[in-house]
Design a protein around this nucleic acid. Sequence first.
DNA 1: AATGCTATATACTCACCAGTAAAACAACAA
DNA 2: TTGTTGTTTTACTGGTGAGTATATAGCATT
Lengths: 205, 205
Amino acid sequence: MSASPSPFRSAKQREADRQAKKQALLEAAVRMFNTRGYHATSLDDVAASLGVSKPTIYHYLGNKENVLSECLRIGLKQLLQAASDARATSGNAAQRLHRFLVGYAKVNLSEFGRCVIRTPDEALGAENLESLLTLKRRVHAAMCDFLKEGMSDGSIAPCDANLMAFTLAGALNWPARWYDPDAGHDPYKTVDAMVENLATGFLPR
Amino acid sequence: MSASPSPFRSAKQREADRQAKKQALLEAAVRMFNTRGYHATSLDDVAASLGVSKPTIYHYLGNKENVLSECLRIGLKQLLQAASDARATSGNAAQRLHRFLVGYAKVNLSEFGRCVIRTPDEALGAENLESLLTLKRRVHAAMCDFLKEGMSDGSIAPCDANLMAFTLAGALNWPARWYDPDAGHDPYKTVDAMVENLATGFLPR
DNA sequence: AATGCTATATACTCACCAGTAAAACAACAA
DNA sequence: TTGTTGTTTTACTGGTGAGTATATAGCATT
């Protein structure tokens, strides 16, 4: 864990350095994409925010659209992870869905998750779009599966799973547009209350 | 109602012409904003889609951001209209809220409504943003009012009205991102089912 | 030392696009 | 007719930003 005593880094360490730099570039980029929007963000500015120059970004990431698509891939992977984490928990399907929704909402408040929500499909070229849509569909399918399973075990009310999944996802995506992480609210509480609203509806029971 | 027999139009008719042209420009612009995104849309292209040239747009609308803000204002006015339409109907607050939500969702599937949802705040300059945020807040407040009224008359379950309003709005905003009007589905049915999902929740009753 | 590979910078090109200037044109008014 | 006002075009300016050519410095391998 401590720094290597030798100033000569091994091949492994150099590769780790490279990955760390790439990651730092993606994090700087995603933050700027989220605050200014993809088109309004210049790679010059992203580079400057880390004290390097634009060609460095091209060295690590090829081109602007690829920077974006890497960010989106990270966010979507996190969403899929939230699904499999929830799937592995105990209880009935409604309880597992509940845990997934909370995890889903939290990812959507992180930088990479917000980027997934805020970036419209048209920002991407056809090739990237296709593979990213596949990931998005996988997330949607995961949510549908929780719902269908719950309809089987009776823990979820009968409904059109596809439409319900869009309803739930839409509600939990929206904070990516209005939630201000610096405003002092506890995101955990907010998310939990939203999921509760979705679970029980606005009509009295 | 018929065309005037004289080729000489009155001042009133000329003013109406002017408004019709302005409206046509806004409609062409909003369609392109929705399909390509604001930044990726050039006013040259918008003009060309109507067979005119860019300075014509500047003649009627001043500048690009103003084109956008006029579109947003139209969409937001439609949302406020949906609120006051629903407010004027009979029944308990939950029923009026239900009607508002359906109207709200429908507006969000129209071009101007979609533009409201799809346009992130950062696309606007400070002056425009402020007045548009006021309108957005008014829509949100209207939704909160329905909820509070319903909690008073017992037709809506006790909840944090503010958060519930964001939950409902988020769910009904999202179709502006995924709904394909050309895909043959009946928007009325879709919207109705979504509102039903929100009313009763995903847990069995 | 020589050679090459990785990382980074400077300084450019090129395209696109918001916005404007100036003129042409159209409709009406005197 | 001539002037006036409103509409629209052609042809431009200026800025911005993606992407690249090229140079350089450092480390690595022989």
